[in-house]
Each structure stands twice: as C-alpha cells, then as structure tokens.
Design a protein around this nucleic acid. Sequence first.
DNA 1: GTGAAAGCGCTAACAT
DNA 2: ATGTTAGCGCTTTCAC
Lengths: 340, 340
Amino acid sequence: MKKKTTIYDIAKELNITVSTVSRALSGFPAISDATKKAVIETAKKLNYSPNRLASALKSGKTHIIGVIVPSVQAHFFASIIHSIEEGLKDSGYRIILYQSNESLENEINGVRTLLEAQVDGIMASLSLETEDVSHFAEIVKQNKPLVLFDRVNPVLKVPTVTLDDFGAGYLATQHLIDQGYKKIAFITTIHQIKIFNDRLKGYKAALEENNLPILEEHIIYGGLSIKDGRFGAGKLMRCTEKPDAIIAGDDFTALGAIKKLKEIDATPPQIGVIGFANEAFSAYITPNLSTIDQHANQMGSECAKMFLKMIAQENPYQNIDHVVLNPTVVERQSTDKLPC
Amino acid sequence: MKKKTTIYDIAKELNITVSTVSRALSGFPAISDATKKAVIETAKKLNYSPNRLASALKSGKTHIIGVIVPSVQAHFFASIIHSIEEGLKDSGYRIILYQSNESLENEINGVRTLLEAQVDGIMASLSLETEDVSHFAEIVKQNKPLVLFDRVNPVLKVPTVTLDDFGAGYLATQHLIDQGYKKIAFITTIHQIKIFNDRLKGYKAALEENNLPILEEHIIYGGLSIKDGRFGAGKLMRCTEKPDAIIAGDDFTALGAIKKLKEIDATPPQIGVIGFANEAFSAYITPNLSTIDQHANQMGSECAKMFLKMIAQENPYQNIDHVVLNPTVVERQSTDKLPC
DNA sequence: GTGAAAGCGCTAACAT
DNA sequence: ATGTTAGCGCTTTCAC
C-alpha cells in the first residue's frame, strides 16, 4: 500500500518548503497567488488529504466536541443531538458521541475518554444516577467549554441551557385546572434531579395559588417508564381521595398511565393525563396525549450557540450564561375534560 | 494555566526515560514490577492523562470509528447507533457521528471529514439521494474497514449487514393474504434504493405465488412520511380496483395512511395496513399498527462484530461477509381482518 | 530491563 | 513572499 501524500510531497513536487505549502493551504494572506494556485493544484493531483490529527497535536485544537447524553434512543436527546450537530456544522466542529445509559460510572468514563481524545469542549446532560458532579471539574480546570443542558446541576458553575422546569410543572397543573380538573396527582422520579424537583415545586405552587390542597398521597415517587406509569396510575386510583387528573414525569409514563386507566374504565379525558416531552408517538395514541413541549431542537441550537460564544472568548467562563426556554402546552384529547 | 503533565514529567520525577514510562503505561512485558508500580503511582500523583492524539499520530490508530446515518432522529437509526456503541465499547473504540440528512452532498462531506479525522473505519447507511457511491471508494483504497448497513449498495464490494428485504416484502404481503386480504397495495419511495426495490420484488413474488394479480395502479411511488402516507392512501382509495390492504414503506407512512382511512370511514383493519420498522409509537396508536420488525439492535451489534473482525485481520477485505437478518411480523390490530 | 533517538504530519515563530 | 527550524506527546527500533 502506497503511503499517503503529505505536505512534504507537495513541497518536493514544487520545489518549495512545507511552510509555504502549509500557508497556501490554510489561506494565509501573505502568499503569492501563483504559488497558492500551484499548491492547490498539486494537492489535488496527488490526492492530498490533510491529517487533522497532526494539525490538532500541533495547534491544540481538534475541532471536535464531545456530547454526553443518557441515550440517543430517547427521541428528546436524539433531537437535541441533531440540532447541536446542525448548529455546529458551519463552524467546522464535529461531534463525538458518548452515551451514559443513565449510569454514573459510564458518565465518568465518558468525561475521561473525551478529554483524552482532546476534544475542544463538552456538552452534557446528566444521568439519573448523577448526584456528585466532581468528574466534570477537570473540564473546567482545563479551561475548556462545558455546557450543561436539560439535566443540569447548579454545583457546577458553567453555562446551562434548560427548560423553565418550575414553569413547566406550573403550566401543566394550571392547564389541568383550567380544563376543570380539581384533584391533580403527580408521578415523578425518586432520584434527586433538579429538573424533576423544580417541576414538582411548580405543581405545588399552582395548586396553592388556586387554593387546592396538596395531598402527599397524590405524589408518586418511582421510576419513569410505561411500566411505572401503569403502576403509578393503579396506585393513585386506589387512593382514599381519588384524583381526577395525573401529571406524568414523561410521555412514556403518561402512556402507561393511560393504558391502565383504559383498563379500569376511566379512559382519559375522564381522568385527565398530561406528560412531558412531546414524544413522536404522543400525537397518535388514543386518546391523543396532551404534553409539555420541551423544545429539544431549540435547546440543541442554543447549546451550539453557547459553545461557539465560549470558544471565541479567551476565557470561556468570563461570563456564565443561563438560557432558559419557555415550555408550552400541547393541548390534546387526554386533558379535554368533558362538561360534567 | 499550568501545562498538562506528559510522560516527560513522569520520567523526570523518577529519573528514568520516557521510553520506560511509555512501556510501563502500556503494559509492555519486559518491565520490572517496581518501575511499573512507581510509574503508575507517579502518573496518578501528577494527575497524568494520556494524549491519545499524539499516540494516534505515531501509531496510526485513533480507536475512533465514524458512523454515517441519515438522521439520529429516526428511532431505527438511533437504536442501531446505540447498539453499535454498546458492541464497541469494551474494545475501546469510540464513535464519531455524522448525519447526512438524506443528502448526498452531506454524505460526501462526511466521508471526507471522517477520513481527515483519521478514523480507523467507517460504518454507513446510505442517504436516499445516494445512487453513485464512488465517494466511499477512498475508504477501501486506504484499506480501512467499511461496513454498510441497512441501506447498502452492491457496487461497493464491502461487508454488509442488512435485513432480508425481499423476505420482508414477501412476509408483509403473505401476512396480509393469510389474514384474508386479497387486493393489496404498496406505497414505496420513488428513489432507486436497493432495499425498497427488494421489498417490492418480495411483494410481487408473494402475489404471484398466491395467484393474485399485480396491478400497477396499486403501487404508489412517492416519499415516505406521514404526509405521503395520507396522500398515497387517498389516491389508492380512488382506484377503479379499490385495494383492501396497504403495505406502507415505513411506520410513519403507515400512520399517515391510517389517519386518512379513519377520515374516510375505512378504519383498519377494515382496510388492512402494515408498515416497516416497528417504531416506538406503532404499538400505541389506534388501531395498533402491524409492522415488520427490522431488528435494529441486532443490526447494530452485528456491525460492531463485523468491524472488530475486519480490524483484526491484516487485510480487512480478505473475505467479505454479508450478514442478512430475518425480518419478523409483529401482528397487531391494523391487519386483524374481521370475518366478512 | 532500560536508554537514546528518530519521526508521525503539521504549525508557527523567527529569519531572510 | 518564502525558507529554516523547533517542537506538539507519544511509540518504537536499535542499542547496551
């Protein structure tokens, strides 16, 4: 197998030096048009392809950024990745992907691996297991941009892009109240994650403002999945004070709740159900699922924008921005309460 | 900002040379246990983190492989990526992601970018626009593993992992016939993609074997999306010979068809509908969508396995395997024909 | 078992 | 406008 052509080959061919070739190729201004043209032609002729590795080793910039998400199989994260890539493409940055699968250990490995790969920065959304975030400190210490999105942790003094989660919880609750529901339950995760705690606070605030009681038996702490949704709904329906509506931690959990409610003849909107995330399926199940849109694509492009801004500064952390997106309600059948 | 520690710092600290440090760190056998231990301890003490870039430049191995897919937003591809990463993780390979967004131009850029990043190999599924595949030739020329999956092209003499698409088309058709449907239509893409052509062939073969006529007006060539599904179903229902079942190119198209059929009071399974891919929503729409499962996760792990096998050989292309997975029918309500 | 030294392909002072 | 040269951090052949 013949060796790959390098700038040395081009230089030899044209009887000039590598520095000239390097300059011609990288659009350095003080280079004669003639040499530039000759270099580019010869490069094409010899089928030259730059070795970004060598350039990265020398310059300290790989133009690759690491993205850590729980799993690309969740549509929400897939959408975010999609729009991060989109937002970064024009500036020549590429993404290297790492999935934590909701495991802290994987997340720690991810940070290490990405740093060893000399990425120019990292974007991450925390795993459900992640409470201690010290493994992210090294990124900041190296003065490389770290942007946290969606599942963030305030202990880390870094820029973030999040949804207004308090607002989201409030909005979901207020929507149900506006529709005429009065005894609203809440299914959430047992993990101490800021965004889920915030939503719970929003829920409680909305109830209070509307002079509705907050019942502890109406708050279910468990997992988030179709199975957990079934289980949670079942448990709620056996309460002494049976709720007339359920807010589920995500659309999958909401789906499970709906399935259970259908079985016991309490099909929504008889009992109202609303989820979070606006997953692909939510518009198409029966009844259609009302949900809080988390604006994944917008979140992704904000992350990209934030990163580009940080990288342009000599000190990426000179001012730490927090972009907060506004949640919106997607009203569908599952909360369309019939007049009594 | 203090400089990062390198093996030179470790060497200096211990009064040995870098070669010894390098050997100790990389598990070279002929190294005394004492030095090895000292090196590892000092590395930890100095907070050493290897620069994989330098090592890659020297060794020619980045341990990064590029993956090109149309879009991670499609659940099918997200699942494949998930299991590729899973299957590769233990052997220390990482994934760098590139999305073509169904554009040939992006795909060409992707190949170039990944090669410039010196990836150790590439896995790809072709964009809908891709008919000419010459941009992939360079990968093979560099003797780097290229594995094509799902959307492949036989012009490229490389290993592939695919579904038996002829079988999938046949299976979908035979399933409908078994259920009692007799006038079966087919919505597919206008693009000349092998897998879609193969499915069409399978469809025709099944009809022939069952002595059913193949009607050109029952084959709709268009796009694949919810919108296209609505459109296709509408067109089919205006045929002179109205079909009693529809095979749609993917689950989204099937979903569109179902929506249209519900509107015109021909709700499945009255008119049967089956899709491809077993998307996340398919089990939860009403009626539940029957579909052909394409075994995304299995496909991903086969890709990983194939890659590892190729990389282990001195010549990755010494024998070119083609793994073909068997499609399976997921029977749900949308094809559950009622007795007449 | 360890050391010396060359070099992977490129960039960027510094020089002319 | 172009050439010279010294590395970036690591691996690896060849010594001893």
